[in-house]
Simulated scan of single mutants.
Amino acid sequence: MEILIIGIGGIAGALSRYAIGKYLSRIAFLSFPTATFLINVTGSFFLGLLAMNMVQHPTGGLIEKYGFQVGFLGAYTTFSTFTYESIRLIEEGEWMIFFLYTAGSTIAGLVACLIGISLKFI
């Protein structure tokens, strides 16, 4: 049952990432990888929120743990694209955008996760 739940969540996460990326690619700022940045930051927020909910309610369901945390967020967020885009920025000589992207992604992701953890509303 866990595999099926992860698979359904993964499909939803991958399709969400694709749709958001496609939409944001039309309104992207310069060569800054806006879509990956926003996807990874929002994914960090939701993982923090869901992880804290699992701590508060350890008997949480399979759908939350496997469907959302492993499946959806695993397919939605993307470290590999982040690293690839970072290397491309270096190759293109976009050093300022590279530093903004890598430092900004790390800091914003940590802050977003911390905000999610601190909400504790469920």
Rank of each mutant, 00 (worst) to 15 (best):
K120T: 05
F37V: 01
A51C: 13
E94V: 09
T36Y: 00
E91M: 13
G48A: 01
T102W: 10
I63H: 11
T36M: 00
E94C: 09
T59V: 12
F99S: 14
L100D: 02
M96A: 14
G93L: 14
I107C: 06
I117W: 02
L114D: 12
Y66G: 10
A28I: 13
A103P: 05
I20N: 00
F29Y: 15
Y84A: 15
I117C: 06
G10Q: 05
S44W: 04
F82H: 10
Q69K: 11
L110P: 00
I90A: 11
E2N: 14
T83N: 13
N40P: 00
L100P: 05
T77C: 05
F98G: 05
E85C: 04
E94G: 06
S31K: 14
G93K: 12
A75L: 08
L100S: 06
V70F: 03
P33M: 06
E85G: 04
I117Y: 02
T81V: 06
A12G: 08
G10N: 08
T106P: 09
L50S: 10
L4P: 02
G93I: 12
L50P: 01
I27L: 07
F121K: 09
M96H: 12
T59N: 11
I3S: 15
H57V: 11
T78G: 08
K120C: 09
V55C: 06
T81H: 01
G104Q: 05
L50Y: 09
Y84V: 15
T81I: 00
C113P: 04
F45P: 03
P33A: 07
G74W: 05
I27E: 07
G13T: 06
G10P: 04
I20A: 04
R17C: 01
Y84I: 15
A19S: 13
I87E: 07
N40E: 01
S25G: 09
C113W: 08
Q56W: 05
I117A: 00
L73R: 07
R17M: 01
I20C: 02
P58H: 06
F29L: 15
W95S: 13
E91P: 07
Y66I: 09
F98W: 08
L30C: 10
E91T: 12
G9L: 04
P58E: 04
P33G: 06
I6G: 02
F68S: 03
E94K: 10
F32Y: 09
T59G: 14
A75K: 05
K65D: 02
I39T: 02
T42L: 08
G67C: 11
S25W: 04
A75N: 08
I6P: 03
T78W: 06
L15K: 05
G13L: 07
T34M: 10
I27D: 00
I20P: 01
Q56K: 11
Q69H: 09
S86D: 01
F72L: 06
E64D: 12
G109M: 08
Y76M: 01
F72W: 06
L47Q: 02
G74I: 07
Y23F: 15
R26H: 11
G48Y: 00
A103Q: 09
G7Y: 03
K22L: 07
A28N: 14
A19V: 12
M52D: 10
I27M: 07
E2I: 13
L119N: 10
Q69C: 15
S31P: 10
